[in-house]
Design a protein around this nucleic acid. Structure first.
Lengths: 191, 191
DNA sequence: CGGATCGTTGATCAACTTCAACGGTCGTGG
DNA sequence: CCACGACCGTTGAAGTTGATCAACGATCCG
């Protein structure tokens, strides 16, 4: 678990393993069972999560009561409602385990301490957020550019592993279409 | 110009004006005329921009040749294709002035130097990107949750200034609908 | 075995796009 | 300072995409 985080950090900044020894003490690990929640609407968002094995998703419930997935996190991804986390305020989102998942988490207080004590981690997280932000823009671009049918094809092409691992109704909810329509798209392709 | 950046930075981190004196030397300022471009597809993305007065937009051209706005930047916003900037690679996006705009910019090299020389700026940019990332998620949420008609109403309610300042076809392109349909929505409301 | 969960299929319908034509306004050049 | 053209917003008719609803099958798991 911790070694996964170490590998990830060293992809972005230089850090020797002695220092990481210390840094790792700011984090804790846990395992969460499939379908269990890490965060629910109206909770305070107290932690951010790093997936070492498994899959989480961040979703909300729209006005008509449907779950809509905003983001997935598989191995080596960070996930949280960062807006609520930063403000230490209530969230509108849910975080749930798609599969039974091993993860590391860090509390708000530890996060602040870590960033103050270890400026190198400030640098790490700056890059993590830059990348996440860039990824959001790219995703937005896909959704605007292509019909839903094409969005699905391109998504499957780019993340084939994803479409296999994640149940279809979650893929649908992530891509912004209904499970029924997604099913029809897949059916069409076979002809 | 520079004082706007100083005000902005001190909203996120503590910084005395002597230090800022030094920091400001990493940035340059310029003014860009309405409709002029700061970045075009296939350019190297060499800079990031901070708007002090005016308005920029980041857009791309989709497969059918239509311009689609991904992001606006008004006063006190940062804008760039951060993905391309980080990788120092070619961009697919355009950045254009919606109005004649005063801005500060920083080159990739200076950005790297700045972050190394001034860890506090690492902290500042970490927060900028956290917020931008959070904003993207929120926007995604709007687009998924609501019909295009409602997306427009809510957008206008939240950013009335925006709808007035920015031409309608750009608002349409940002919200992901056609100018014609947006016009019909506005017409409807009058009844 | 039995129930819940997930994917499929077809019919209907609404939201939104596309295309084409028109009118107003702004800015530029003559 | 006027006239022209480019640009932008509007309107209507027709066409598509994708949502919704309902029913059925398959599979998984207790």
């Amino acid at each position: 678990m911790y070694s996964d985080l170490y590998s990830h950090i060293t992809q972005f900044v230089e850090l020797n393993s002695n220092d990481f020894e210390q840094i790792s003490s700011y984090y804790e690990c846990k395992t969460i069972k499939k379908k269990k929640h890490l965060l629910k609407a109206n909770d305070l968002c107290k932690e951010i999560y790093f997936v070492t094995k498994g899959c989480l998703h961040l979703y909300f419930i729209d006005d008509s009561g449907t779950e809509k997935t905003v983001q997935f996190a598989m191995e080596n991804w960070w996930l949280s409602d960062f807006q609520a986390f930063n403000r230490q305020s209530k969230t509108n989102f849910f975080i749930q385990a798609v599969e039974t998942t091993d993860l590391l988490h860090i509390s708000f207080d530890n996060y602040q301490k870590l960033l103050t004590d270890w400026p190198i981690m400030e640098r790490y997280y700056r890059q993590i957020h830059e990348i996440a932000h860039g990824a959001s823009l790219t995703r937005m671009r896909y959704i605007f550019n292509y019909s839903k049918e094409e969005v699905f094809y391109r998504f499957r092409e780019q993340f084939p592993e994803f479409v296999q691992r994640v149940p279809q109704y979650l893929v649908a909810s992530f891509l912004g279409l209904t499970p029924e329509y997604l099913s029809k798209i897949r059916g069409k392709k076979l002809s």
